[in-house]
Amino acid sequence: MVNFEYFEATSLEGLPQLLGNNRNENVVMAGGTDLLDLLKERILQPKRVINIKKIQELHGIQNGRGLDIGALTILSDIAKHPAIRKSYTVLAQAAGSIANAQLRNMGTIGGNLCQRPRCWYFRGREYVCLKKDGSKCYAAEGINKYHAIFGGSPCFIVHPSDSAPALMALGATLEIYGPNGRRAMPLKDFFQLPEDNLMFENRLAANEIITRIRIPEPEPGTRSLYIKFKEKDSMDFAISSVAAVLQIQGNRVRKADIVLGGVAPIPWRAKAAEAELQGKELSDAVIEKAAAAAVSDAEPLDHNAYKVMLTRNLVKDALLRLRSA
């Protein structure tokens, strides 16, 4: 780590002015688990690290009509929260699947949404890749077994967050604090593909922070789950994951939200699969069709074609499980 200055903020007011417009100068620290990794590898060399953990209004879960989660809520609190486990199952499962017990006690939900990709070329100092202003994506022709099968070009990172697909499937909205005060941004608009911005995976401005995450109350008949497939069960990132939220009325799917993790530079909405399910009964045939649709536009690289099969099967698994839930 470079020798930075440390600032422990206790209020939101003034924070955007302090953060300013240079992302490399001032960085926000929440749980710190991703940030310290980037600092230790000197991928980030900021002048100042701003710890926001002491800002009280960023903490706490409120469950009323919908869910209102402070951005600094730690992942273990979300995974264990009785109401979240019951009514927002996909989120509790996603939070509980992250890293390990220790890191879930440290990492925050806001930080999880903002974490940087795990691409080993991005994380390795010796590779000056596109994301580091270099001229090539090492993964494109390198070792890409964990890389993107959707939306990759020109940079084939995958978004590592587990909570993001879950929150997106739940229709979450972020409250963001910036120089002009608070604004709301639907999570679906938060992430951006490399083709839109190579450097950053989301649209948070340099002088903004996420303050709260709001999830609408589920409609009656909603059931949800998160399936995460890891190469190694004891602590690993998703090779592929599925966040599925279905609202079922009578026997039919009234609304389907399926978001994939670990397969694209952003949480990847499986629109074709959702369309296949819309208004249908969850028959075996419909499930097969939806699963196939989920990966119909996949574009695998040399070493990750298996992720296409895997993802199709995970979607199928998710739908079968939701059917019998």
Binding site: W120, Y127, G142
Partner: peptide, 14 residues
């Protein structure tokens, strides 16, 4: 599980 991966273009362990 275990496998050392060597990047073909740089000759380094990723």
């Amino acid at each position: 599980l275990e496998e050392r991966h060597m990047d073909p273009s740089t000759g380094t362990m990723v």
